[in-house]
Amino acid sequence: MNVFRISADLLHLLSIFILLLKMQKTRSVAGISFKTQLLYTIVFIARYLDLFESHAEKSFELVTLYNIVMKIIFISSSVYTLYLMKKKFRATYDPNTDTFRIEYLLALCLFLALMFNYRFTVMEVLWTFSIYLEAVAILPQLFMLSRTGEAETITTHYLFALGFYRAIYLLNWIWRFHMEDYVDWIVWISGAVQTALYSDFFYIYYKKVLHGEKFVLP
């Protein structure tokens, strides 16, 4: 555990908090892609299946407890978000702007996970699948943003926190590579792709929102 990793995780938590705040405060899910939220829920469940494995034989460290708590928060908040979008604030969701085809993303990531993994077991392939899927899970949201052409400021704060936490993870890996000889190519390449997908968004967020303007696509 290092300062980059902990800051990234806290920023990830903050992004979830901002998303929940946006929905509760405006009592609306307008501008939020249900498909992206669904993909995140699939990502968390596929990756954190180890929660249901026996922990008895594992050496118990503080970081294990930390991971367990975070995993439970990530899964439950993403399921709760789906509930808010599908039930509580359903009337404010506009499916006509959320038209990205996630079937292709799911199929591509499953294919890649079956081809490129560290070990060909169910748990490992699902873990790898979740890494690949997380890298592209934001695409429906960015697609929705490009279709509507503008976004509420609080929604852009959510996206910024979500993208920026991935950028800090890159620093974490550089740090770990130097300090622990840590190498994880699957995570590194996916993480780099994931962060790169935000570049246009980061640019417009910096140009507009940080200067007090509304987020509008040029």
């Binding site: 990793r5 970081v63 991971n67 560290y118 070990r119 490992e124 873990w127 993870y169 974490n172 995570v187």
Partner: peptide, 10 residues
């Protein structure tokens, strides 16, 4: 590859 794969990140 590694004997036991331990994914210690989130």
């Amino acid at each position: 590859f590694r004997d036991s794969i331990r994914h210690d990140e989130l």
